[in-house]
Amino acid sequence: MVDLLLAVRGLNKQFRSGTQSVSVLSDLSLQLGRGESLALTGRSGSGKSTLLNILCGLEKPDAGRIQVLEEVFDSRKPAGSRQAEARWAALRRRQIGVVFQEANLMPALSLLDNVRLRARLAGQADDKCEDWMERLGIGELADRYPDQVSGGQRQRAALAMVFAMKPALILADEPTGSLDRHTAEAVTRQLFDLQARHGCGLILATHDAELATRCNHHLDLGHQPET
């Protein structure tokens, strides 16, 4: 693979539940190149969200090596965790866009202000923000607040925020999970469209098997975590 974006090797993650420990991810490896997309499927609790959190540094794996762009995080080389955290934060700020199923926007800011805030944090000029909103079809909602628009519009705004930061990698956790089929389809189309156009990587956690087939790669995390 010419332009490697993400490389994961030997990833392990366990959760403690009482006296038992539940292995959610075990010896997982994957790679993703620029412009590629990966679908994560599996039942609830199979570790999709955990994997996404680990891939953006919000959670720590028990073991494994993760390389995002030039940054390498290896659990065997416990460099200062604060330093690792700072590198992760820098990555999230400029390179990794995260979209959740809901609540991606600051409630107290208008849609446009949300997009601007995200762009500014990523070091991007905020004059493109309105363009992004236009392209996602929510241009006229710029001054509305999150609670004044529909769920689909909020998710479009979330996409606008992610694209406004010009990320290398997008992590989307069921981004259309709470939308009706029609809206979900529209939002999904926009997501893939833009991802393809800007050549960023996309990892998409979803229940939707049909959606998964649209991605270049597919990783099924299985049914139940191993005890």
């Binding site: 919000l58 934060a89 990555l91 999230r92 409630p107 995200r118 944090l121």
Partner: peptide, 14 residues
């Protein structure tokens, strides 16, 4: 808390 955490998700150091 979720929303304050968004700041961290968006790459603001803790």
């Amino acid at each position: 808390a979720w929303y304050f955490r968004l700041l961290v998700v968006w790459g603001l150091p803790r």
